[in-house]
């Protein structure tokens, strides 16, 4: 069952990342990280739109957070 596999992977991920130690970047050096290009999404509404288009055209879905609503699948 994939749920069990998922739980195992989450446990593995959280323990691996949780135990690793990377030196923190100080608060005053985070200007480049705040650049628009460094954000995960181009924009929230673009991500929502693109996600919906691809989900309706392709077999795959998921991976970008929560499941959405509706079909619009034609």
């Amino acid at each position: 069952m994939r749920l069990l596999r998922w739980v195992a992977m989450v446990t593995l991920l959280s323990s691996t990342v949780g135990c690793s130690n990377i030196e923190a970047v100080p608060a005053w050096e985070r200007g480049y990280l705040a650049e628009p290009g460094m954000q995960w999404e181009l924009s929230r509404r673009e991500a929502k739109f693109a996600g919906h288009v691809y989900t309706s055209k392709e077999a795959s879905s998921g991976g970008s957070g929560a499941a959405g609503g509706g079909c619009g699948c034609n």
């Binding site: 990280l33 460094m38 998921g62």
Partner: peptide
């Protein structure tokens, strides 16, 4: 659907993330 993820600042110019999702 369930999602779990983590993002990590690597340097002052780089950041990485990993996520896992499960949907039934």
């Amino acid at each position: 659907s369930l999602y779990f993820g983590v993002s990590q600042v690597l340097t002052s110019t780089s950041i990485v993330r990993v996520g896992l999702s499960y949907t039934i």
